[in-house]
Amino acid sequence: MFQVFEQFFEARYRRRYNARLQLMAYQIEMLRSRIGTDRIYTRPEERAELIRIGAELDHDVDDVLLVVKQGTYRGWLRSQEGPKPKKPGRLGTPQTTINLVMRIAVENLTWGYERIQGELKKLGISIGATTISDILKREGHPPIPGKGSSRPPGQWKQFINSHMDTLVASDFFTKPVLTWRGWVDAYVLVFIHLGSRRVFMSPATFNPTEDWALQQSRNAAMRFEDMGIKIRYLIHDRDSKYSQRFRAFWNSEQVKCLRTPVRSPKANGYCECFIGKIKRECLNHFVCVSLDQLDYINREWLAYYNEHRPHQGTDIGNKVLRPDFSPTSEGDIKREQRLGGVISWYHREAA
């Protein structure tokens, strides 16, 4: 019995001894083939042979492996075992959401990241503007240029923030209309309630007289009263069309008129921002040939703005202005269009 154990340990020792000799001999061959070089670079077949021989020693080769460092040899072994599984982390954006982001971006080339984010929020899909930006950049979609801030500075900003719910801003904008006399500017008067962003927009006119502006003021006051909005302050610039009678009417309604400083468009930034939106996103795409056409375009835009468009203001929270609207994640996604596709929005089709 003792002889059997002796033979077993002798065979095992001899096998390891031979493996050590083979390992050292193979390294000598490697070194001989590289005489005259500063550094030894192992080839894949050489690494495989070193690992094969090292396996005979249970990879206990620290005292006989001279051609490479021990860490390198351990790295070869780890590479054979394959990559370690990654730790669980944040889930990626679902492919269906990525496809929807790209669909909206391609169908509406002038929409920015936050505009797309608001439309997705309506559809019950929560996604960050930065994620949308990353998706569009990854897919090679051109970025939308940023827009400058229109927020009022300093104490004026503090005043506006403190009176948002009772504050209305007003301004005129023009749109050229082609007539038999050539191009003539049509004037539109806008009133916007800062707290809710609800807007009243007058019909267009070529001759914005004092009487016309006064009548539009009456219409706006009745419209805001119907919406349950109590006005205390009205912001407007120093345009001569804001006459004494215009201010007297609002004073009779217990509304204080505040004129902005000279050459300070940011002091009336909310109204300026609205006018910029309607021009960029709508009116600049049309050549108007009559006041009726311009009024129709403005009515379609205003209905879209007040009922369907998400608003990106920090105090609004990228939401739709319509009080009865609530996001839903059920139903197929459909695209609605108006004015030949210039205006578009998305909604869930009821089952």
Rank of each mutant, 00 (worst) to 15 (best):
F173P: 00
F159T: 03
S133L: 05
L178K: 10
G154Q: 08
K175R: 07
T130V: 06
L178N: 12
L136H: 09
I160E: 08
F173T: 02
K147F: 15
P176R: 04
S126P: 06
L120D: 10
S126N: 11
G140R: 03
D171G: 07
T166F: 00
T130K: 04
D165M: 01
F172E: 13
L167A: 07
S133V: 07
Q158S: 12
H163A: 00
P152M: 06
D134T: 13
K157R: 13
V184W: 14
E119P: 08
S149V: 12
N161Q: 11
T130L: 02
D134L: 04
L120I: 09
P152T: 14
M164K: 13
I144T: 15
P153H: 11
R138T: 15
E139Q: 12
K121T: 02
I125D: 04
F159I: 07
L178H: 14
G154D: 14
H163V: 05
S170I: 06
I160Q: 08
K157P: 00
S170G: 11
K137D: 15
I160H: 06
S162Q: 12
L120V: 10
E139C: 06
L178V: 15
G140K: 04
G182S: 12
T130C: 02
W156S: 10
K157M: 06
H141K: 03
P142W: 00
L120A: 08
I127E: 04
E139M: 05
F173A: 03
P142C: 04
M164F: 09
D165Q: 12
S162I: 02
P145K: 07
A129W: 07
S150V: 00
L136Q: 05
R181S: 14
W156A: 10
V177D: 08
E119F: 01
G146V: 01
P143L: 06
D171C: 05
V184L: 07
L167N: 12
L136F: 11
I144E: 09
I160Y: 07
I144H: 15
L123R: 07
A169E: 14
L167C: 09
I125C: 03
Q158K: 09
L178W: 15
K122E: 11
R151N: 10
S170L: 03
S149G: 14
P176D: 02
P152H: 09
G154W: 09
L123I: 12
E139P: 09
P143D: 06
S133K: 08
V177E: 06
A169L: 11
R181Y: 15
K175N: 04
P145S: 05
P142G: 10
G140T: 00
W156H: 15
G128D: 13
P176F: 12
